[in-house]
Simulated assay, not measured.
Amino acid sequence: MKRFMSSKRKGKKIFIGLAIVVFFFLVIALLQFLWNTLVPEIFGFKAISYWQALGLFLLSKLLFGRGFGRPGGFRRRFKNRDMDREDISEEDRQRLREEWKRRFDSRCKF
């Protein structure tokens, strides 16, 4: 039974890995398609190849994205680092929450 579960997990990991790789190549193909469909007509630029689309994707991720790390952003890092620490007393947590509300509540109305 253990061997079956282990091979099942391994197969699941391989499938997920392959799905991620296929998704990555499909995103590049979509970028190339959209560029070649829209940009030459709108701006008069030339069409690009698949590899140029890959380079454009990587360049845009480096310039405008957060890199290739895990999603979650500042909020998750802040919460995990400061609010869930055991060495902060409950009074300090409450004081920190009040300070954040005082500073940022007017800007973060939904």
Rank of each mutant, 00 (worst) to 15 (best):
V21H: 04
K61G: 01
F43M: 14
A19E: 13
R66F: 03
V39L: 08
I14M: 07
L58N: 04
W35S: 00
F64D: 11
F43H: 10
L62H: 09
I14H: 03
G44A: 02
I48Q: 05
K12M: 15
F15L: 15
F24C: 13
F24R: 02
L62I: 15
L56Y: 03
S60R: 05
I48L: 02
W35F: 12
L34C: 09
F15S: 15
A29M: 09
Q32M: 15
L54K: 06
S49P: 06
I16V: 14
A29E: 11
G65T: 06
A47T: 08
G17Q: 09
L18F: 14
F25W: 10
F57A: 11
W35R: 04
G44R: 12
A19N: 12
L38Y: 08
R66Q: 08
V22E: 09
I14A: 11
L34P: 04
A47C: 07
L30E: 11
L30D: 07
A53Y: 05
I16L: 12
L54A: 15
A53G: 09
A47N: 11
W51D: 02
K61L: 05
K12G: 00
F33P: 05
G65S: 14
T37L: 14
V27R: 14
L56E: 02
I48M: 04
L34K: 09
F64A: 15
R66T: 04
L56R: 06
V39Q: 00
P40Q: 00
L56A: 13
V27W: 14
P40C: 06
V22H: 02
F45P: 00
I42E: 04
G44Q: 03
F57C: 13
K61C: 07
K46Y: 01
V21Y: 00
F57S: 14
F43T: 06
F33R: 07
K13N: 11
A29D: 02
W51N: 01
K46A: 05
A19Y: 09
F33Q: 04
F45R: 07
G17Y: 05
F24H: 08
V27P: 01
Y50G: 01
I14C: 03
I28T: 11
R66W: 02
A19W: 10
S60I: 05
G55Q: 09
A19G: 12
Q32S: 07
G65Q: 11
F24A: 14
S60M: 10
K13C: 03
K61S: 04
W51F: 10
A47L: 01
L56M: 13
P40Y: 05
Q32A: 11
L30M: 13
G44M: 10
F57Q: 10
F64Y: 14
F25E: 10
V39P: 03
I28C: 10
L18S: 12
K46V: 01
Y50P: 00
G55Y: 04
L18G: 13
W51M: 08
I42Y: 09
R66M: 04
L34H: 03
I14K: 11
F57N: 06
L38D: 00
L63F: 13
F64C: 14
L30H: 05
K12F: 09
F64P: 10
V22S: 13
L59R: 08
F15M: 15
F33A: 12
